[in-house]
């Protein structure tokens, strides 16, 4: 009796170990974004105080600083959600890894019995295929949900970028505080660029390779 080639080839092609490595990398990026969001929150607080000192000349800057603070809080919440999702994806990947190991050994057993008619072996193979397929589909679904969450995080970060650029423009109207406000808004723009980079890396880390 021959093993269904396509199934076992598919099972062999899914590198769960590297999926786990991807999850670890994703988690590191999430941690880095959370740390940066915390930094933005503090920066925004300082900017609010600075805008208050600058008075009416920095009213617009003050409004934007408040928005940036809210942005930092929203980003932290979004990252907490992503972190929760990556923790859940460890469960999905571990389950797939375990199934893959069992399938590999089952495949060896079936090949060792080649030429013998063993009743029920086709049922066992079908069951293994179904179990693997189910776990693989669950992971694929999870990957999609994770990427939708990343897309909405991307939109949030775009908004942060717009706020930072607007803060730069408002800083120009800050009178004697203009250079201090410009420095703060430049810092905002830099950290948001850092977040964008981390987010790009996160988006590249797929749990399931395209086309598999």
């Amino acid at each position: 009796m021959n093993a269904p080639e396509s199934f076992f080839q598919a099972a062999a092609g899914v590198s769960s170990e590297s999926q786990l490595a991807r999850i670890v990398r994703s988690n590191e990026e999430i941690k880095s974004i959370v740390a940066t969001a915390f930094k933005i929150n503090l920066m925004a607080l300082n900017a609010i105080f600075l805008a208050k000192r600058a008075g009416t000349a920095a009213l617009g800057f003050g409004v934007l600083s408040n928005e940036l603070r809210r942005f930092a809080q929203d980003l932290t919440q979004q990252m907490a959600l992503l972190r929760e999702m990556t923790a859940e994806s460890v469960t999905a990947v571990s389950s797939l890894m375990q199934q893959r190991r069992l399938d590999r050994i089952l495949d060896l057993a079936v090949r060792a019995c080649e030429g013998k008619e063993i009743a029920g072996l086709d049922v066992v193979m079908a069951r293994a295929e179904a179990a693997f397929g189910e776990k693989f589909q669950r992971l694929r679904q999870f990957d999609k949900v994770l990427h939708r969450a990343l897309e909405s995080t991307g939109q949030l970060v775009e908004l942060g970028g717009v706020l930072a650029r607007s803060a730069k423009i408002e800083a120009a109207y800050g009178g004697q505080y203009s250079s201090s406000l410009m420095q703060v808004s430049t810092d905002f723009a830099e950290v948001i660029d850092q977040i964008k980079l981390s987010l790009e890396k996160l988006t590249r880390e797929r749990l399931i390779k395209e086309g598999s």
Binding site: R101, I105, L106, L108, A109, R111, A112, C113, K116, I118, A119, G120
Partner: peptide, 19 residues
């Protein structure tokens, strides 16, 4: 153990019905 399953299973199948 799990790693010797193929060897045990195939030897058993050679002599009797695993069902």
């Amino acid at each position: 153990g799990i790693e010797i399953f193929p060897a045990v299973f195939s030897a058993l199948c050679a002599e009797t019905d695993p069902n």
